[in-house]
Design a protein around this nucleic acid. Structure first.
Length: 334
DNA sequence: GCATGTGTTAGGTGCCGGAA
DNA sequence: TTCCGGCACCTAACACATGC
């Protein structure tokens, strides 16, 4: 049983406790929904397109919002646990959800379900190493460099900037989770990349991004962006990178990925720490170059992830453009 | 048989969260 | 605030495979 089926099985036993309502779940293999949830009450019937997620965080919400136009029925998020803060945010955005702890918000008048305050019944499952920071660095390298799954571990460790010892553990997890399949003479092949990409985006926000964030800055220079001294270790991410590759977005936030942030760089560009600044600097965690490096732009996967996390409509729209233009071709090569 | 390349793993280190 | 234990990650050594 995969993770989604396990969550669905738990949900089925939870919703039996909702008196007067009959729930049915039918798994589907659409590009947007994982299942169709049907609620019956007296003679009334409601259908919902369900997205099943192992966790809920801002990036998952972003991905969910990106797919909204595709849903045929009102959508509902099904997950293991939604904490009270996240539940409040989902309610405020009118996003339906049900979790395995028994919390739910389903608003489709006259049907209204709003159950709060239930705590998770079991401790979170042991997290795979592949979704820890070192694992996420390796997966990022693999997703950005198709065919790299058969290079030796030392090369992969250098490109991903993780220790050699970690590579073996992560590759083992990728095999165990069905993302790395033996393919005869060709060695191993990365499969199910679309799911892996979405998992990467979700976990990047929680696990890796906080560790590589160096801080927020503002510049005291007017028109600083035009006089910025760019060096070879600095790449644009998020909104400004999206502007460069799509020419669609007008950036309000500026995200830089820098290999080693040096004081001279800050002094030259007159950047100073500011919690509300519109310049965010993060550590560039990978060492490989690709076609985007010359344009001082991070790989599209990272731009996509940062835009999705922002949860802003225009950014999500741009993320979808980048997904369709730059990512779908790579992940469909199974 | 030796050199080199590769994957595995034991032990050390540092970080983080919870308890006092 | 400090201490402590658990955990993730890294280093370095080891074993094995391969090619000359």
């Amino acid at each position: 049983m995969n993770n989604k089926s396990a969550i669905l099985t738990s949900i089925e036993s939870v919703v039996k406790l909702y008196k007067g309502l009959n729930f049915e779940f039918n798994e589907v293999s659409d590009s947007y929904a994982d299942a169709v949830m049907t609620i019956k009450c007296d003679n009334a019937v409601w259908n919902f397109d369900a997205g099943i997620k192992s966790t809920i965080n801002p990036s998952v919400i972003g991905q969910f919002l990106q797919k909204l136009p595709l849903y045929k029925n009102p959508p509902v998020l099904i997950t293991s646990y939604v904490n009270s803060k996240m539940a409040e945010e989902l309610r405020s955005r009118n996003i339906n959800f049900i979790d395995t702890a028994g919390n739910a918000f389903v608003y489709s008048p006259p049907l209204v379900i709003d159950i709060q305050g239930n705590k998770p019944i079991q401790k979170e499952q042991q997290v795979n190493r592949m979704y820890r920071s070192s694992g996420l660095k390796i997966i990022f390298t693999l997703l950005c460099n198709p065919g790299l799954e058969n290079v030796d571990y030392r090369t992969l460790s250098k490109m991903s900037n993780v220790a050699l010892g970690s590579v073996g553990w992560v590759m083992r997890d990728l095999k165990q989770n069905g993302y790395l399949k033996e393919s005869g003479k060709k060695g191993y092949r990365l499969v199910n990349k679309e799911d892996l990409l979405q998992q990467w985006v979700s976990n990047y926000h929680n696990q890796l991004r906080p560790k590589i964030t160096l801080g927020r800055y503002s510049s005291i220079k007017e028109n600083w962006i035009n006089s910025l001294e760019i060096n070879e270790t600095m790449l644009w991410g998020s909104e400004y990178a999206a502007k460069i590759i799509t020419n669609y977005l007008r950036p309000e936030q500026y995200t830089m990925y820098i290999h080693e942030l040096k004081t001279e760089f800050l002094i030259k560009n007159r950047l100073h720490k500011s919690p509300d600044g519109n310049i965010e600097i993060l550590n560039k965690f990978w060492t490989f170059d690709n076609e985007w490096t010359n344009q001082h732009v991070v790989p599209p996967l990272l731009i996509y992830a940062d835009l999705i996390i922002s949860k802003l409509d225009r950014n999500i729209e741009t993320a979808k453009m980048i997904y369709d233009k730059e990512l779908i071709g790579v992940i469909k090569q199974d």
